[in-house]
């Protein structure tokens, strides 16, 4: 009866990560949330993974999870690895997942927002400090927080129904 346990099962299939790292389950939540970003069309979404040296392994793991396309609801996620120093090359991505020091870095957010790329992190302090558009937590229950100011400066908007079901700060 509960089709909605599938994301949880998918998460279990993935190697349990270190605490605070972005998991495949987080990616699936991010991907499903991307379905509700206005202006996008088609089913393919390019997700830039922005990382620093300390989070390179985590970034590689996420890219591996998306190898060949990761299905998340009605969209398919394809990874593009972007070192933090190259954040000026984010143009064309649908979203940027910020890892390590990239989450909370003003330069990364500025580059992403000027390119109209939605920034997202599992580090909630990033969205709370307006350095990310979206903060995502997938366990124990799904929590999505959007920073309205960051979204406006990134020219990112969401479907009205979605916006009413998340936290907005």
């Amino acid at each position: 009866m509960r089709k909605f346990i599938l994301p949880a099962l998918a998460g279990l299939l993935f190697t349990t990560p270190a605490m605070a790292e972005t998991t495949q389950r987080d990616l699936e939540v991010i991907g499903r949330a991307l379905s509700f970003v206005e202006g996008a069309s088609g089913s393919d979404r390019t997700v830039a993974i922005v990382y620093d040296a300390a989070s390179e392994a985590e970034a590689q793991a996420l890219a591996s999870a998306m190898a060949g396309g990761l299905s998340a609801g009605r969209v398919t996620l394809n990874a593009r690895l972007v070192p933090m120093a190259d954040s000026g090359s984010l143009g064309g991505a649908d979203a940027a997942v910020l890892l390590g020091a990239a989450a909370g870095d003003g330069g990364v957010f500025s580059a992403a927002s000027s390119a109209g790329v939605m920034t997202v992190s599992t580090d909630m302090s990033c969205v709370e400090s307006a350095q990310c558009v979206m903060g995502v937590q997938s366990a124990p229950s799904v929590r999505i927080v959007v920073n309205r100011g960051a979204a406006d400066s990134s020219s990112v908007s969401f479907a009205a129904a979605f916006a009413m079901m998340i936290e907005e700060i």
């Binding site: 089709k3 909605f4 346990i5 599938l6 994301p7 949880a8 939540v29 499903r32 949330a33 379905s35 509700f36 609801g73 009605r74 229950s141 799904v142 129904a161 979605f162 009413m164 079901m165």
Partner: peptide
């Protein structure tokens, strides 16, 4: 379907008129 898959539980607009 997409909403319930995203949030891991059913969604509804029946209680207040708003999606929840």
């Amino acid at each position: 379907t997409a909403m319930s898959d995203l949030f891991g539980e059913p969604v509804t607009a029946g209680a207040t008129g708003a999606p929840q």
